[in-house]
Design a protein around this nucleic acid. Structure first.
Length: 423
RNA sequence: GCGGAUGUAGCUCAGCUGGUAGAGCGCCGGUUUGUGGUACCGGUUGUCGCGGGUUCGAGCCCCGUCAUUCGCCCCA
């Protein structure tokens, strides 16, 4: 038991866990490609203002969860707590506001100083999709369709439901917000302590309070519906119509308001009951003003992010570990011949290993334990005859195969051996 | 940041009302170097999370601390 521990809220990804993560990311990358999204990689840290400016000063993410530090020249830098702000910054910095729309996929670690829990870590991983430069509801629907197809491909769609809401445009949202503040201010005596706090910082969040008393109040609170401008209503109707066209089921939930300040119009969450209080697995919305905040022009955009850890936990089965072909020397065959055979097979794309020591029995035992698909026995007899004895470790069947046959068919013969379930 | 639970070998756990630690699995070696996943034999492993305190004596009691976990907050 070493005294060196991983930093609180961080974890190592090894074996099955790593395979689960890799699977989530590679499936996401693939599906994003089907929708025409290209992958971007932005730095893991940015100037602090990239995040503080965009997420809203009152969000917890900014006010107390950022890993910020001063660079040697005194500049404040921050380990990214989320992906969207950095993508917007990159859009502006690279002058891509001239070639819109941009459809961006990203994957990588994020950092938030929070109390760790199941499905919540200080270093965690997100995948995300951002569709920058499209104001039409079709863009929102496409982003959601991409998310939906991803969850389906991962086999978790049945455990997850899509909840959808609109915050309207700025005018709608401001009017609604004012009405909410007025309404709740009139019932301060009945509000929970948390919600009193929210009233100051982010009144919309009172709507998804879990407090029973709050919920009674919320039931009679002003509804967004009543504050939508005609334009916002048209957008909302258009989105739902398009989702219907995509054949995607959703549930309208007026309390999906999202915590980050930059959202307007569409907000949505894919939620599950299987992860305790960390039920949100993928969430996003429209952020028409964010790029402008980064110093660019107005670029209406929609996007989402998903937690890789949470998705990995929902996966029914971990991808299988890759299986190797193992060469087992018998007696003491010529080493040069052995090495050249090893490399020939590897160059043909076969996953081949050779043990470093041990008796024949030991080597077989290890090949069995590591779940090798085949064993190739190679002794002086085989070398002399120019062949191998190939043993299928699954069936136990054994056959002598000539070297020429093996080399010319290696890829197909052992296709299953090198195959990684993570693709 | 707030509240509850937990913390004994690599893993899962046992350890009765305090007397200085055990099992299973795993791991390593072997059952005479042309064959594994079965069987048999042998072996290995712990500052009982860490630091204090009470006690003749603590894995068991008390305090603190760290970590994990559940809920709140927040969020992916």
């Amino acid at each position: 038991m070493s005294s060196i521990q991983p930093v609180r809220g961080t974890h190592d990804l090894i074996g099955e866990q790593q395979r689960r993560h890799a699977h989530v990311v590679s499936v996401a990358r693939h599906i994003a490609g089907l929708y025409g999204f290209d992958e971007w990689a932005t730095p893991i840290f940015e100037e602090t203002r990239v995040f503080s400016r965009s997420l809203g000063d009152t969000s917890d993410v900014v006010s107390k969860e950022m890993y910020s530090f001063n660079d040697r020249d005194g500049e404040s830098l921050t380990l990214r707590p989320e992906g969207t702000a950095a993508i917007c910054r990159a859009l502006v910095t690279n002058g891509l506001t001239q070639s819109l729309p941009q459809k961006v996929f990203y994957a990588g670690p994020m950092f938030r100083y929070e109390r760790p829990q199941k499905g919540r870590y200080r270093q965690f991983h997100q995948i995300g999709a951002e569709l920058l430069g499209a104001a039409e509801p079709l863009a929102d629907a496409e982003a959601i369709a991409l998310a939906h197809q991803l969850l389906t491909a991962l086999g978790v769609a049945d455990d997850v439901t899509l909840e959808l809401n609109t915050l309207g445009d700025t005018a709608s949202r401001d009017a609604w917000r004012a009405a909410l503040v007025a309404y709740f201010s009139g019932h301060k005596d009945k509000l929970s302590e948390d919600s009193l706090n929210r009233l100051e910082k982010n009144p919309l969040r009172i709507l998804d309070s879990k407090d029973a008393g709050d919920r009674v109040l919320v039931a009679d609170a002003p509804m967004m519906e009543d504050f939508l401008t005609p334009e916002a209503r048209a957008f909302w109707d258009g989105l739902r119509r398009t989702l219907d066209g995509f054949g995607i089921a959703y549930k309208v939930n007026p309390s999906i308001v999202r915590g980050l300040d930059y959202y307007n119009h569409t907000t949505f969450e894919f939620v599950t009951r299987r992860l305790g209080s960390q039920g949100t697995v993928l969430a996003g919305g429209r952020y028409d003003g964010l790029v402008q905040q980064m110093g660019g022009p107005e670029v209406p955009s929609i996007g989402w992010a998903a937690g890789v850890e949470r998705l990995a936990m929902l996966l029914e089965e971990a991808p299988a570990a890759p299986r190797s072909v193992v060469i087992v020397p018998v007696g003491s065959p010529d080493e040069g011949a052995l090495l050249s055979i090893l490399q020939t097979l590897r160059q043909q794309g076969v996953r081949v290993e050779i043990g470093y020591r041990g008796s024949l029995r030991k080597r077989m035992e290890r090949a069995g334990k590591q779940n090798a698909s085949h064993v190739l026995f190679l002794g002086d007899d085989e070398l002399a005859r120019g062949s191998f004895r190939v043993k299928n470790m699954g069936t136990g069947e054994e056959a002598e195969v000539s070297r020429d046959t093996l080399f010319s068919n290696a890829a197909s013969m052992f296709a299953k051996a090198g195959e990684s379930a993570a693709q």
